[in-house]
Design a protein around this nucleic acid. Structure first.
Lengths: 105, 105
DNA sequence: TTGACGCGTCGGATATTTCCGACGTATCAA
DNA sequence: TTGATACGTCGGAAATATCCGACGCGTCAA
């Protein structure tokens, strides 16, 4: 793990799911781990990867550690994808689907 | 490689660079490989991963194989990121930078 | 103070990734 | 046809990823 890059952090489905969970608010490690078919050490090690990629931040609270989402490094992925957006957006025809979906929010 | 998912395909910097190269048009394998500090078999195996993730398509042309970019599976990553976009976009203040950059094209 | 809890991390097992040289196949040029 | 070229893939080496049980440390509740 010499280079804690964001792309590698996202390569694992467990880590992606952890990030999804953390959207709803900070969570303690045991609480997170109970949602997976994994032992606590494994989850703890996934959190270490996410920490090194700066995608999560830890907040000690008594004997627990609450992990917070920090989505900012995801912008690196988003920026990278922008180089390709042009290509696949062409195929969506100018139906305004995207705008409609935005307006519906 | 039981599950050729797009996230894993993007985890490797060589594969990301291959996709970048292919934006400019289809390329033969040796042509691609010459741009990396890697042997041809390695590049060929990276192309296999990209093929299984359906990010590239091969077009035999005589004894060469031209690889074409197919960026459509990238929309899966884009969609996943959308679940987080809201979070980091909040921090970019409403300066309209994005719109300006779009207008400049 | 004591025992239970929450957590990180280590040692080690296993699986996967990444790379290469070697080989076989198909295609080209002469 | 013959030799060179372009490529995929295999066997194996080395590195990395993933997971677990065990251990140690700090914190809490009694």
């Amino acid at each position: 793990m010499l280079e804690p890059d964001v792309f590698s952090a996202l390569a694992n489905p467990v880590r992606r799911e952890i990030l999804m969970q953390l959207r709803k608010g900070p969570r303690a490690v045991n609480d997170l781990a109970s949602g997976f078919d994994l032992g606590r050490p494994a989850v703890s090690e996934h959190l270490q990867v996410l920490r090194k990629a700066r995608l999560v931040r830890e907040e000690p609270r008594g004997r627990e550690r609450y992990y917070h989402l920090d989505p900012r490094p995801l912008s690196e992925v988003d920026d990278w994808l922008k180089a390709f957006t042009h290509y696949w957006k062409q195929r969506l025809a100018a139906l305004g689907d995207v705008l409609d979906e935005e307006a519906r929010k």
